[in-house]
């Protein structure tokens, strides 16, 4: 078992390394020149060349990448003599925003985490609730309702749901104020209010596939022999469902949800745009508009880290639950 975990972690580490290298190379190979962005409209080529040296963009890509990795571990000073020092883990320095990228990310991450966490709880409740209901009342109206919801939800683009929510709850009925993010530490009530709409928007869209997964999962398990055996032996249907069926059916769903959640942590790009939340997604969009390369490299990396870690975690979890996996 330990060997399996070690191997899995090693693989995750290798994957992370590959992802970081790839990200760096992809962005470095782009036609936009980060040095050219450091000075204004009448910039002379000499100034750009000077800045390129100053920022280390003149060195071969491998060296640049090495410096980048070293920065993550040890911190790094950007610019030459009068440079700015960003302590470890340094993910770069934005010459557009004049700030260490790590600082920008630590500010945005809690916002995205707030969005992702609330939405996750909601969509699991909705998805599993409706899915279970559908499975137990299979073929009857609750099933149709749940399946209908899932089909509609899966067909709606996130931004459309978000805009509809704003239209209905903010503009037409005025039930909620216009979402405006507030940190949880500064004002928990406002934090909660500001996130209701984003949570529901994401939850409705994501829950749809979980309704399906749950419903099919439960139905599949209920067809298995142990359930039939249990029923035949006179176990109460309710006990059986809660104790055995749900447990067996939900495990794969929870793991998939873990992966989805991790992916969301990298930035709920569309939701954050619709509701104007200053999270990772919004940070990336702003960086795209400013051609702010260091930020883009960093947000991509951070998002990838979440995905890789979640994958490794899920694999290891499966290894515990199902020994057959370990041989893989």
């Amino acid at each position: 078992m330990l060997i399996f975990i070690a191997r899995r972690l090693l693989f995750a580490l290798a994957l992370l390394f590959a992802v970081s290298a790839f990200t760096y190379v992809i962005f470095a190979a782009l036609p936009s020149d980060p040095a050219a962005l450091t000075c204004g409209k009448n910039c002379r080529p000499e100034v750009i060349a000077m800045n390129r040296v100053r920022l280390g963009y003149d060195k071969p890509i491998v060296v640049q990448y090495g410096q980048y990795l070293k920065g993550i571990v040890k911190g790094r000073t950007y610019g030459a003599s009068e440079g700015v020092h960003c302590p470890a883990p340094s993910l770069g320095y934005s010459f557009r925003k004049h700030q260490c990228v790590t600082d920008l990310i630590t500010r945005s991450l809690p916002v995205t985490a707030s969005v992702a966490l609330g939405a996750f709880v909601l969509w699991m409740l909705i998805g599993i609730g409706l899915g279970t209901m559908a499975a137990l009342k299979r073929g009857r109206w609750p099933d149709r309702l749940a399946t209908g919801f899932s089909v509609v939800g899966i067909s709606l683009p996130t931004f459309f749901v978000g805009l509809l929510a704003i239209m209905v709850f903010v503009i037409w009925t005025g039930l909620l104020p216009f979402p405006r993010y507030e940190g949880i530490t500064s004002n928990p009530a406002k934090w909660f209010m500001s996130l209701i709409l984003p949570w529901f928007t994401l939850a409705i869209v994501s829950a749809s596939s979980y309704v399906r997964l749950t419903r099919n999962g439960i139905l599949e398990v209920m067809n298995e022999e142990f359930v039939r055996l249990g029923l035949a032996k006179g176990l109460r249907r309710r006990t059986l469902i809660v104790k055995y069926v749900m447990r067996a059916a939900l495990l794969p769903i929870v793991t998939i949800a873990g992966l989805d959640f991790a992916a969301l942590l990298g930035g709920a790009v569309i939701t954050e745009s619709v509701f104007n939340l200053p999270g990772m997604g919004k940070l990336s969009i702003m960086a795209v508009n400013d051609s702010d390369l260091p930020i883009l490299v960093a947000t991509t990396l951070v998002a990838a880290v979440f995905i890789v870690i979640a994958n490794a975690f899920v694999d290891i979890l499966y290894g515990f639950l199902d020994p057959r996996v370990r041989s893989y």
Partner: peptide, 17 residues
């Protein structure tokens, strides 16, 4: 900084807080 233009308008129209 960094607010969507439509968001700014909505907030100004609502005139809250």
């Amino acid at each position: 900084f960094g607010l969507d233009e439509s968001v700014i308008d909505e907030r100004m129209i609502a005139d809250a807080g």
